[in-house]
């Protein structure tokens, strides 16, 4: 059971949050100019990292804020939470 730090509310049990997938996938600005392949890459391809992964969470049963978390997907250790638009932590992949 993860213990996630919401940048606004502090550490809370995982059950207060909902997962929202890989972070830092910017929506293309001029979608019409993309090839089908480029659009498919944005839409479906994911890093799915085994190791340090940057992902979005939503404090659904709290402040309803989305934020980013850097988490090791093997140990599940969270190296830090940061607000959208902020630079994340420099993770220690151990």
């Amino acid at each position: 059971m993860l213990l996630i730090e919401c940048p606004w509310c502090g550490e809370r049990d995982e059950s207060e949050f909902s997962y929202a997938g890989e972070a830092h996938i910017a929506r293309p600005l001029e979608t019409e100019k993309l090839s089908d392949e480029e659009w498919a890459n944005y839409l479906f391809l994911r890093k799915n990292i085994k190791g340090l992964h940057r992902e979005q969470w939503n404090h659904a049963a709290g402040c309803r804020r989305y934020f980013n978390v850097e988490r090791n997907t093997v140990s599940y250790k969270i190296s830090g939470s940061y607000k959208i638009g902020e630079q994340g932590p420099v993770g220690d992949d151990t």
Binding site: S18, A20, R27, Q56, N58, A60, R64, R65, Y66, I84
Partner: peptide
Amino acid sequence: LSSMERWLQTE
């Protein structure tokens, strides 16, 4: 609601 929030907050 959560989808709209996500677009607003993150994009």
